[in-house]
Design a protein around this nucleic acid. Structure first.
Length: 592
RNA sequence: GGCCCGGUAGCUCAGUUGGUUAGAGCGCUAGCCUGUCACGCUAGAGGUCGAGGGUUCGAGCCCCUUCCGGGUCGCCA
């Protein structure tokens, strides 16, 4: 027997014709002399009818099937009687009248039912991921991911990009995330690292003369997992020579517009909004702001200084700030307990507390009422445009704490009060990131993006005198408050690169030891270049409205970075370790 | 490493103040059934209450430890 159709790909034109389908038994409905089988493949479900009166032998075989048996059925596609039409089914007007039937493979009773919105828990599903993948929503997810990846290849191919692979076994580089290491058998005591991204290689491809490169590739970072972070994930990575910021942004806006059109059928207008980093922080308290709603931050530091409220004035005196958001109309919506819960949110992000004022017709209620004179209150109300019914929330601290706390508060309030309209696709560039940031632990400047990111031309003068002031030619693309990609224009000038290394405390020897191959390359004619990388998993996740990238990865890992299906990671034979010149220490021995 | 949530039948869950033999729905098995599509009807099987320890006359329930999973902070250039 040879398959002629997928189950749900039969059309009205096929009615009356002989067809053969193969798939899994979704459901068996046995009416005695009449048997219905809902047959499923990746396209959907088709009902098969087996009649014992007309096909006794066939029926005898078919009644043996159970859920998830794999069968092949040949027969005539027929229209159902009007009374038997199932309007909830894509193929509900037709059915396959079996004339030949083969059980290709039996199945044990599956540990959970194969269906959308499975209520089975994650452990069970991930242990049996091969079954979980049969569920229609997992099939849809991975099909969308495929379309997105294909769209990227098509678009960048059409725009003159070449897909070139870069090594998986490479050199560990300092800074950034923790590397996954691979021991060398041939060179005792030495290790490869799996790439955190193809960053250096794609820059070398630019030096190598491939002026437009793209790749869809795995990246590895040995850090703790989150709903949107897996130890291995996939980037759509690209790099272009002879470009500046606007060129990179342009080709990517075209890509995203095409991706949303082709994959989602959604029109996203270009150009996208652009928001400089300092505005993103001061208005939204985040470098990946969700701008689908307001609740913007408002600086009240000047009012706070003269408020007579020590917590407020002290924060400003210490170089911090007092900022607030006005949760319009939330006064009556939030109980005291719920406001306290907002305080807990603020404390999660290191705020020492959350000060609040509820404005009502009669006056106000506040957590710091005794410090609120008429004048001070009037000042805050005017600054925040407050009206009766509003809930004003204040955080006083160092700027980074204030931004972090209020930034997350506005998300919490938006989520709780339903400010976010589903089905909106809010694309936004965040630009002009700081080039450097202070490393608290080591008390030095470190690259915020990476050490090859170019400073903005107008800030070059400050690189040595006031490094914190220098902005970078770096940009992130943000979708609905989630960073889906980021990149920068790179340094292509050797002198500037040296200066950059000096600023982040690298001696020439250290830089040479770590990035020598790149610096060598840059001595031989480097085109100006820059690029960007997307998180394919995250973009797929958002397009599907999911809140975990596990839903768009065929075989994901759990929070302990383990694969429940294969049991990886696992112990290996001593022989393998010997070959790799590795001796274990400090490993708690399990009972053998 | 910290904090929070969860773990009872194959699955999803209920389980009163600590009290007899731990229940339900779905699924599964067998029988019956010619238009089902959440098929129906009848009968049946199915339990290390995650694991270990403690308190108690008595623990699914209380306490301690631990394992597993999820969320989150730190971490993630």
């Amino acid at each position: 027997m040879k398959r002629t159709h997928r189950c749900a790909e039969v059309t009205a034109a096929d009615v009356g014709h002989d067809i053969t389908v193969m798939g899994w038994v979704q459901k068996r409905r046995d009416l005695g002399a009449l048997l219905f089988i809902a047959l499923r493949d990746r396209s959907g479900i088709l009902q098969v009818v087996v009649n014992s009166e007309t096909h006794a032998e066939l029926h005898e075989k078919a009644v043996q099937v159970r859920s998830e048996f794999v069968v092949a059925v040949r027969g005539k596609l027929a229209n159902r009687d009007a009374s038997a039409v199932n309007a909830n089914m894509e193929t509900g007007t037709v059915e396959l009248v079996a004339e030949e039937f083969r059980i290709l493979s039996k199945s044990e009773t599956p540990p959970f039912h194969i269906e959308d919105n499975s209520s089975a828990n994650d452990v069970l599903r991930l242990k049996h991921r091969f079954l979980d993948l049969r569920r229609p929503d997992m099939q849809r997810n991975l099909m969308l991911r495929h379309r997105l990846a294909k769209c990227a290849r098509d678009h960048f191919h059409d725009a003159g990009f070449l897909e070139i692979e870069t090594p998986m076994l490479t050199k560990s580089t300092p800074e950034g995330a923790r590397d996954y290491l691979v021991p060398s058998r041939v060179q005792p005591g030495k290790f490869f690292a799996l790439p955190q991204s193809p960053q250096l290689f794609k820059q070398l491809l630019m030096v190598g003369g491939f002026d437009r490169y793209m790749q869809i590739t795995k990246c590895f970072r040995d850090e703790d997992l989150r709903a949107d972070r897996q130890p291995e994930f996939t980037q759509i990575d690209l790099e272009m020579a002879f470009v500046d910021v606007d060129d990179v942004i342009g080709v990517n806006e075209t890509f995203l517009r095409k991706a949303f059109k082709d994959v989602m059928g959604v029109d996203v207008p270009t150009p996208f909004k652009r928001l400089p980093y300092d505005q993103a922080m001061s208005r939204y308290g985040s470098d990946k702001p969700d701008t689908r709603f307001g609740l913007e931050l408002c600086d009240c530091s000047d009012l706070a200084v003269s408020s007579g409220f020590q917590v407020f004035s002290g924060a400003v005196d210490a170089g911090g700030s007092v900022r607030a958001i006005n949760a319009k109309g939330c006064g009556p919506k939030y109980s005291r307990k719920e406001i306290d819960a907002l305080g807990d949110v603020a404390k999660t992000y290191k705020a020492k507390g959350l000060a609040w004022i509820v404005i009502d017709e009669a006056g106000f209620k506040s957590s710091f009422a005794k410090f609120l004179t008429e004048d001070v209150l009037a000042g805050f109300k005017a600054r925040l445009g407050a009206e009766p019914g509003d809930l004003l929330l204040f955080v006083a601290d160092k700027d980074d704490v204030v931004f972090d706390a209020l930034g997350h508060l506005r998300l919490a309030i938006a989520a709780k009060t339903g400010l976010i309209r589903p089905g909106t696709w809010d694309l936004l560039w965040v630009t002009e990131f700081p080039l450097l940031e202070r490393d608290g632990e080591e008390d030095r400047w470190v690259a915020k993006h990476h050490p090859f990111t170019s400073p903005m031309d107008e800030d070059l003068a400050y690189l040595e005198s006031d490094p914190g002031k220098v902005r970078a030619k770096a940009y992130d693309i943000v979708l609905n408050g989630v960073e889906i990609g980021g990149g920068s224009i790179r340094i292509h000038d050797q002198e500037l690169q040296q200066k950059m290394f000096r600023t982040i405390g690298f001696t020439e020897e250290q830089a040479q030891a770590r990035f020598g191959f790149l610096l060598d390359a840059f001595r031989y004619g480097t085109p100006p270049h820059g690029g960007l990388a997307y998180g394919l998993d995250r973009l797929s996740m958002l397009m599907l409205g999911k809140d975990s990238i596990r839903d768009v990865i065929a075989f994901p890992k759990v929070q302990t970075a383990a694969c429940l299906m294969t049991g990886a990671p696992d112990v290996v034979d001593d022989k393998q370790l010997d070959e790799l010149h590795i001796r274990l220490s400090d490993v708690p021995l399990e009972a053998e």
